[in-house]
């Protein structure tokens, strides 16, 4: 485990020494503060709009940070040839991959905490309430969702170029987030093999939208989601992450590095 944590440590160090996170965070803060300062038609409900926009920015920024960080890990190691002195040490390739995954996931988690603290501050300043349990659940589920996306990106990174990988993962992730829940409904209206195929696809894909509880916190649901459901979603997320990582390890194990 110590080897996996050592690799993860380098990933985290790299992320906070790069400027991506700071740029995205500053942009989110600026846009949110700009919107919060405007009083459209003196409507008090504008606070919901501000919260929604802030959360959209957080979701986009977190996705960009997670995908771009994970996508460059293995290709950059190969391009800069840092993989060679690393693999010349007593470390297995699967440990390198798990370390990379863990590093990206923890770094994304740290970034999410900063984003959500800002969101909570904006929300509290306007609504004068702080439903901490709901915000924690939103953050936690968001983090689990990023875990799946990072694992998928790591799988792509051992087989594809970074540009192709980032594009494919963004399309898949956004596609599932926006259309995942409708696939089954469409499948039920279709007949024949195409309906069956779409149904199979619905059950095979990781439903990232399960982790999206933005709507609850935008509309100020003060009652948290049952914790058993949060636990189930966490297990669901871990299962998909483990599946993608196992596939990545299988592909990377056979790769000749020269």
């Amino acid at each position: 485990m110590s080897k996996i944590f050592a690799v993860a440590g380098v990933v985290i160090r790299e992320l906070y020494r790069r400027k991506d996170f700071y740029v995205l965070f500053i942009l989110t803060v600026l846009i949110t503060l700009l919107m919060a300062s405007v009083h459209f038609f003196h409507d008090d409900r504008i606070v919901r709009f501000v919260k929604e926009m802030c959360l959209i920015l957080i979701w986009l920024s977190a996705l960009v940070i997670a995908v771009t960080t994970a996508a460059r890990q293995i290709p950059m190691e190969r391009e800069n040839r840092t993989i060679f002195p690393l693999l010349a040490k007593p470390i297995a390739r699967w440990q390198v991959l798990l370390g990379k995954y863990l590093g990206c996931w923890l770094a994304s988690g740290a970034a999410l905490v900063v984003f959500y603290v800002f969101f909570a501050a904006v929300s509290a300043s306007r609504e004068h309430s702080l439903p901490l349990a709901s915000y924690f659940q939103a953050l936690w589920l968001h983090w689990q969702m990023l875990g799946i996306v990072i694992a998928l990106t790591i799988l792509g990174s051992v087989a594809l170029s970074p540009a192709a990988n980032v594009t494919i993962v963004f399309i898949i992730s956004l596609g599932i987030l926006f259309m995942g829940k409708y696939l089954n409904m469409v499948a039920q209206r279709m007949t024949g093999p195409s309906g069956t195929l779409l149904s199979a696809l619905y059950f095979a894909i990781p439903h990232l939208e399960f982790f999206d509880v933005r709507i609850l916190i935008i509309h100020g649901w003060t009652t948290p989601i049952p914790w058993a459901d949060v636990l189930l979603a966490t297990i669901y997320g871990f299962a998909y992450s483990a599946f993608f990582l196992a596939a990545a390890c299988l592909v990377f194990r056979r790769k000749a590095l020269n």
């Binding site: 110590s2 080897k3 440590g9 160090r13 790069r18 800069n80 840092t82 002195p85 040490k89 470390i91």
Partner: peptide, 20 residues
């Protein structure tokens, strides 16, 4: 072929952890 964003101390500490 080393991580250029690390200092030599950090690099050596990282590899030392790999060797446990």
């Amino acid at each position: 072929y080393y991580y250029k964003f690390l200092t030599v101390e950090e690099l050596l500490r990282f590899y030392a952890r790999i060797f446990e």
